[in-house]
Design a binder for these strands. Structure first.
Lengths: 225, 225
DNA sequence: TTCGAAACTGTACCGCCGGTACAGGAGGGG
DNA sequence: CCCCTCCTGTACCGGCGGTACAGTTTCGAA
């Protein structure tokens, strides 16, 4: 049980790195066994086929992902009593964690699975869907707490706002990877943070120039004047 | 020349749909020739290998993508003279276009390439990178115009804000596809629109309740009081 | 009308890869 | 000592990407 787990973990480690770089279809079992130093039979002893490898990979990834969010936003919660301040701190901590990744974010397995969709069975697709729904619930929960205290400046649907967090993260990863700019992801998280702060917090700092050549818009009264 | 282009286009059409569902690695040439009703020799007459197919696919996708943005934001520009209002209308039109897609957004090839990275040559990676940079320039250009007229409520870097548009689109696609909720993408675009409006527009409508049990934050003065 | 290029088809073949089958062996705990 | 876990080794299959190359159709220009 001990030794087996260790080998299994080693395979998963190698597989995860490879899949995030080349996708599932682009990752061959042969290359995995070559890198882990195991035989083909050994590999199929642990995973009966590629689909089961994907399943294990995705489940482990999601668990780890959840753990990280628990830690970050849990820590933020400990440091800040106010739900908004705690959420903003959490986003800050998250962006710091992301910008500390030496080679940038390696990629999100949820996105990989999403773009490989049709070749997996229903179970994997359902797991992936549930992972995204878990994000929605997680961020939704925090945002609801915030909204109990801070009325949003604009009317927003809390689930869509929660999804925005996931969107910016997933999109930021794609941008960061494609541009080969590791810091872009962290910056996108900070941009999102600005959005959240602006949405819930009364005007942050008094603007230097109060009036500008604004065109005439129907309702807009300027609270800063 | 005529006939050849037509067949080539048919192959690309079939390939694009397949690749967006299963990734490059998950799409076999054999299945493409089966669906297009061409022979293997015929396929390799048009594309010397899979890499060249990918190149053609990506270039065509990017051109089409640029064309759509040109149309949408061009039309918005014709209808609205004010850069902010025109941008906001553009986002609205974009979200309408996205929610009109019958089966939801099929996926973004740029993201697919990004998650298949290592198996393509430098040229494709560079093409992909340039596509994202073009988005940055496009949205950056519009945002700069806006900022010349409207001072942002919070200090923001224009390129990071431009990237936010791409992030939300890419992330929204991943969410939409994974959740099998076609409308999520359109809603994310509207959420982004709210952000942009809030960032540049003076308070939209006077809040009902002006004061709330806000904790003490350093600098925050409330302009609405 | 002929010629030639473009746009294919047909056939045969290679090596890699995913996956199966199965036999056997090391090593450790009861 | 035995049995279970955790593998190794060998052999094999069919699908797939890719190559090679010969032959055929189509169709517009000379």
């Amino acid at each position: 049980m001990r030794k087996g787990e260790e080998t299994r973990t080693r395979i998963l480690d190698v597989a995860e790195a490879a899949v995030l770089q080349k996708g599932f279809g682009g990752t061959s079992i042969e290359e995995l066994i070559a890198e882990t130093g195991i035989t083909k039979s050994g590999f199929f002893y642990h995973f009966k086929d590629k689909n089961e490898l994907a399943k294990a990979l995705l489940n482990r990834y999601i668990e780890n992902d959840e753990r990280i969010y628990d830690e970050i936003f849990g820590r933020a919660r400990d440091l800040m009593d106010d739900p908004l301040q705690s959420f903003l701190l959490g986003l800050k901590l998250l962006s710091e964690l992301l910008s500390d990744l030496p080679n940038g974010h390696p990629g999100c397995l949820v996105a990989t699975v999403c773009y490989y969709e049709r070749l997996f069975d229903r179970e994997i697709q359902e797991t992936n869907r549930n992972a995204v729904l878990a994000w929605r619930r997680r961020f939704g929960r925090m945002l609801r707490e915030i909204m109990e205290v801070y009325p949003p400046r604009e009317p927003v649907d809390v689930d869509r706002l929660a999804d925005m967090v996931s969107s910016v993260l997933e999109g930021g990863i794609v941008l960061s990877k494609t541009l080969k700019e590791p810091n872009t992801l962290a910056e996108q998280v900070l941009m999102l943070r600005t959005f959240v702060r602006m949405l819930f917090l009364p005007v942050a700092d008094p603007p230097v120039a109060a009036v500008r050549q604004g065109q005439a818009f129907g309702a807009a009264g300027n609270g800063q004047l």
